[in-house]
Design a protein around this nucleic acid. Structure first.
Length: 292
DNA sequence: AGTCGAGCCTGCTGGC
DNA sequence: TGCCAGCAGGCTCGAC
């Protein structure tokens, strides 16, 4: 499930293949991803080079020499794989090729770097867009909150964003306008690290005048820590996420509560048992003893 | 305006 | 063993 750490892992894998390389050929085997591919997709890419490959929240952004930005989203089941002359014979690549149905290879980029970059997405919740660079900031998809790993994401900014919110803390953290890039897994993990209940009102992160409470301090630290740990582990591989070389991420082995229903809470000295409840139609995993 | 649920899509899992 | 309902998840849209 690609959340911020998985997308960042993918970005790091794609960068050597795509940055400062141009598109030699673009094949679209399927146009109907979450949204149809842009008109004249291949024609607008071929010949352009990628000046930088960035990430914003869960979006990959390729700045093109044509003045457009290629926006790519992995949806829920999207993955990229990179093959070049050397990687083709690597064990990981072989395993990767076997593990993915070629029927779901929707878009293939042949790059001047020698790499072939293939986008595979069984569920087709992913998408690709082309947006003029000058319009990117105004694009509705980019109207989202701060990057959680940026210095601008602070207890004060989170408290401000949550002030007056009647919804649960869990729902607020999943709201990309509050903070951008978190999904179900890392919200559950961060709340356990911060020992805060997912069911508490979001507004309790702020005092009456909007200043951050100690809860906000703990939560921001926990969010940053869990994301950094997950990126260092190459993300979490549950069903879908893989690195671009086919290797699995390993952070799923370090989950404290996610998908650990009935397990012992890992908080030191806590006798609690992890529970699963449903909030806003999604599973929440948490410890009712230490998460208050 | 803020909040919540449905729907998109496919593959895997678990219960019968 | 085989079948199928249920679930997973990010994001948008419509309803309240």
């Amino acid at each position: 499930m690609p959340e911020l750490p998985e997308v960042e892992t993918v970005r790091r894998g794609l960068a050597p293949a795509m940055e400062r390389a141009s598109f030699l050929a673009v094949q679209a085997h399927r146009e109907d991803l979450r949204w149809p591919l842009p008109a004249n997709f291949a024609r607008r890419l071929v010949g352009a080079s990628v000046e930088a490959l960035r990430r914003r929240a869960k979006y990959l952004l390729a700045d093109l020499s044509s003045g457009e930005v290629l926006v790519m989203h992995l949806g829920m089941s999207g993955s990229f794989r990179v093959l070049d002359g050397a990687a083709e014979h690597a064990p990981g690549a072989l395993h990767f090729a076997r593990s993915r149905s070629l029927a779901h290879d929707h878009v293939v980029f042949r790059m001047s770097s020698g790499a072939t970059v293939t986008f595979n997405d069984p569920r087709r919740f992913g998408f690709m867009l082309l947006v003029p660079r000058a319009e990117l900031e105004k694009h509705p998809l980019m109207r989202i909150g701060p990057e959680p790993l940026d210095r601008a994401f602070t207890p004060a900014s989170l408290a401000w964003a949550c002030a007056g919110k009647a919804t649960s803390l869990k729902a607020a953290l999943l709201d990309q306008k509050v903070v951008a890039g978190l999904g179900n897994i890392y919200v559950c993990e961060a709340l356990n690290r911060a020992r805060l209940s997912p069911r508490r009102r979001a507004s309790t992160l702020a005092t009456r005048n909007g200043a951050p409470t100690p809860h906000a301090e703990r939560l921001v630290a926990a969010i940053k820590a869990v994301l950094e740990d997950a990126i260092a582990a190459g993300g979490s591989s549950l069903r879908d996420h893989r690195r671009t070389d086919g290797e699995l991420g390993s952070f799923q082995h370090k989950f404290r509560v996610y998908d650990r229903e009935s397990g012992r809470c890992p908080t030191r000295g806590c006798p609690g048992i992890v529970r699963r409840v449903t909030q806003n139609g999604r599973s929440t995993f948490f410890c009712p003893v230490c998460q208050k």
